[in-house]
């Protein structure tokens, strides 16, 4: 039955020659303006999960954690900026730049930067280029699992405005509409030097106390969720993957 319907859908859209191009307007498909995120107790609904799975996941939205004041926070920021641990999750072409960065020529270890295998251990997420919708789902999932304070570095033109994939049906154009981004590095693809410059820039940002991505995410949680859910149609994970 379902298959028949599907087939009819394709048959209808087999446009004969010269007919105008028809695309379904995605805005009307998964209507995300009225997605419901919270129940009355302000807990997450987790509507993508099955009944028994819901018990296994957290239903608390992220909270804003206020920074301390004065020298203590400065000290913490200094410590954070000098031990940037990269999540070993390569997306897009740009992830290839992380290898030369690790080895002796560019040697990122001398700046206190090193890769880590799991989101829980890492503090910086390098999005190495184009993020397809399918990858976006994994990116969101990994990003939310990282412990705050956490930083995101958008590497390459693709993360900025879609780069050469700006017209692809499957590549998101602006990364910062889905997760907060601290530093962008332009180029297609940027050299490891540019990546190092970006990391140094990130260090300054953190030292000045401007690396507040995690709090920004918590503050604008609903906006980010609406954007994410608009493109990720098969949302079968918790609303907040902590």
């Amino acid at each position: 039955m379902e298959k028949d319907m599907e087939r009819r859908l394709y048959a209808d859209t087999g446009a004969p020659e010269g007919s105008p191009v028809v695309n379904p307007d995605p805005r009307t498909l998964g209507d995300s303006s009225n997605i419901q995120l919270f129940n009355e107790q302000l807990k997450l609904l987790n509507s993508g999960l099955t009944e028994e799975d819901r018990l296994n996941f957290c239903d608390t939205p992220p909270e804003v954690i206020k920074p301390f004041r004065g020298h203590w926070e400065n000290f913490l920021n200094w410590a954070r900026s000098e031990s940037l641990w990269i999540l070993g999750f390569g997306t897009g072409c740009g992830a290839i730049e992380l290898r030369p960065l690790m080895t002796s020529r560019f040697d990122m270890y001398q700046y206190g930067i090193q890769p880590r295998p799991t989101p829980r251990q890492s503090s910086i997420f390098v999005i190495g280029g184009y993020a397809s919708v399918k990858t976006m789902k994994r990116i969101v999932r990994s990003y939310e699992q990282m412990q705050g304070p956490k930083f995101v570095l958008g590497l390459g033109s693709c993360t900025i405005n879609g780069g050469m994939y700006y017209d692809s049906y499957n590549t998101v154009n602006r990364l910062d509409h889905y997760i907060p981004v601290d530093v962008y590095i332009a180029g297609c693809m940027p050299r490891p030097e540019a990546l190092l410059a970006g990391l140094m820039e990130l260090k300054t940002i953190i030292k000045e106390g401007r690396g507040e991505g995690a709090n920004k995410y918590a503050e604008n949680f609903e906006w980010y969720k609406a954007n994410q859910k608009r493109i990720i149609k098969d949302w079968n994970m918790p609303d907040y993957n902590w």
Binding site: N23, D167, T171
Partner: peptide, 13 residues
């Protein structure tokens, strides 16, 4: 039309 789809779905900078 992939370009139009992209314009409708994603946010252009």
């Amino acid at each position: 039309d992939t370009k139009r789809y992209s314009e409708d779905t994603f946010y252009k900078r």
